[in-house]
Simulated scan of single mutants.
Amino acid sequence: MIDNPLIEKYFNNTLNEKELDEFNSLYKTNSNFKSEVEFIKNLKKVTEHQDNENFKKQLQSYDKALSNKHKKKTWLKPLMASAAIIAVIICISFIFNNSINEDALFSSYFEPSKNVTFPIVRSDTNVGLQNDAFIAYSENNFETALNLFESSYKNTNNSELLFYEGNALLALGKTNDAILKFKEHLNYSDRLSNRTHWYLALAYVKNKDLSNAKLQLQLLLKSKESFKNKETKQLLEKIE
C-alpha cells in the first residue's frame, strides 16, 4: 500500500504543477520518501520483463520444487519468498498500469478557451449581446455568459458561439450539456471546429468515457491543428 498520495499520482502521471513541485521537494529532502519512490521504480522495471506466461511457468517450477520430497527443506523458504515477491510485483504493476484518475486528468488539462473570436469593447454605452457575453466569459462569470451566448447565437447564427457555450457549460460542471453543445458545434466548419475536439475529449474524460475521448484526440491530431498538439499527445498516451 502506498502511504503518500503524491507517489501514487506520480506513477499515474496525474500530478498538477503544484503537486509536482511538492513531490520534487520531498524527493530531494526526505530520504524515506525517496526510498519509497525508488523501491516502486525498481519494482516496475522488473515487471516490464515479466509477462504472464513466464509467471505461470515460474509458479509451476515452484510447485514441482515444493512437492519434491527429495529436496532439502532449506529450499522451501527461498522459493516461497520468491513466489510472494513476484506476486506482489505483478499486483503493483497491474495497479499502476491500469489506474486512471479521470477527474484528476480533467482538472490538470482543462481551462476554458481564451476568447479568440470577438474583441471586447469596455464602454458605458450598449454595444451588444456578444460584447456583454465575452466580457462575462473573460471574468469567469460563466452562467451569465452562457445565457448571453445563447441569445446572441439566436440573433447572429455565429457558429463559433457554440464553442464558447460548450466551454462555459464544461466550466460550470454541466458535462453532459457541454458534450451536446460541442457535438452541435462540430456540425459546422469554422476556425474553432478542430479545437472543439480537444474540449469534447476532456468532457468525455470527465465522464469516464475514455474510448470516445481517445477518438476525439485522434481526430484532433489528424486535423493537423497546432492547437494543444503537445497536450493532445500527452493525454492520449495517458489514457491508452
Score class of each variant (00 low, 15 high):
residue 70 H to Q: 09
residue 181 K to T: 14
residue 118 F to E: 06
residue 234 Q to H: 07
residue 170 L to D: 09
residue 122 R to F: 11
residue 209 D to Q: 08
residue 186 L to W: 02
residue 116 V to G: 09
residue 158 N to D: 15
residue 192 L to N: 15
residue 56 K to P: 01
residue 227 F to G: 04
residue 102 E to T: 15
residue 10 Y to T: 02
residue 57 K to D: 14
residue 2 I to N: 07
residue 38 E to G: 00
residue 58 Q to D: 15
residue 160 E to G: 03
residue 194 N to D: 12
residue 92 I to A: 12
residue 69 K to F: 12
residue 48 E to Q: 14
residue 173 G to T: 00
residue 50 Q to H: 14
residue 174 K to H: 13
residue 207 N to Q: 06
residue 41 K to Y: 00
residue 80 M to G: 05
residue 7 I to W: 02
residue 221 L to I: 12
residue 161 L to H: 11
residue 87 A to M: 10
residue 108 S to A: 14
residue 78 P to V: 03
residue 101 N to T: 10
residue 192 L to P: 06
residue 211 S to M: 12
residue 135 I to E: 14
residue 13 N to S: 15
residue 8 E to I: 15
residue 107 S to K: 15
residue 221 L to F: 01
residue 91 C to D: 13
residue 93 S to L: 02
residue 134 F to Q: 07
residue 109 Y to N: 11
residue 127 V to W: 02
residue 181 K to N: 06
residue 145 A to M: 13
residue 238 K to E: 15
residue 137 Y to E: 10
residue 180 L to H: 08
residue 122 R to P: 03
residue 34 K to T: 00
residue 165 E to M: 14
residue 172 L to A: 11
residue 176 N to W: 03
residue 24 N to I: 00
residue 198 W to P: 12
residue 135 I to Q: 14
residue 15 L to D: 05
residue 133 A to Y: 08
residue 3 D to V: 04
residue 186 L to N: 10
residue 112 P to Y: 02
residue 46 V to P: 01
residue 14 T to M: 09
residue 35 S to Q: 13
residue 124 D to P: 02
residue 230 K to G: 01
residue 233 K to Y: 00
residue 163 F to E: 03
residue 114 K to G: 10
residue 146 L to P: 10
residue 167 N to G: 09
residue 215 L to D: 11
residue 49 H to C: 07
residue 72 K to Y: 10
residue 199 Y to R: 02
residue 72 K to C: 02
residue 231 E to K: 14
residue 57 K to P: 06
residue 232 T to A: 02
residue 53 E to Y: 10
residue 32 N to H: 09
residue 176 N to F: 10
residue 240 E to T: 05
residue 81 A to S: 12
residue 227 F to M: 06
residue 189 S to C: 07
residue 131 N to W: 00
residue 25 S to N: 07
residue 107 S to Q: 10
residue 148 L to Y: 13
residue 60 Q to D: 13
residue 151 S to F: 04
residue 201 A to S: 14
residue 56 K to T: 13
residue 179 I to F: 05
residue 194 N to A: 05
residue 166 G to S: 09
residue 40 I to K: 07
residue 169 L to F: 13
residue 186 L to H: 06
residue 152 S to T: 09
residue 86 I to H: 14
residue 35 S to L: 08
residue 240 E to L: 08
residue 127 V to C: 01
residue 219 L to C: 04
residue 105 L to N: 08
residue 120 I to E: 04
residue 95 I to F: 15
residue 89 I to N: 04
residue 175 T to D: 05
residue 20 L to D: 03
residue 4 N to T: 08
residue 3 D to H: 06
residue 223 S to F: 09
residue 112 P to R: 01
residue 139 E to D: 13
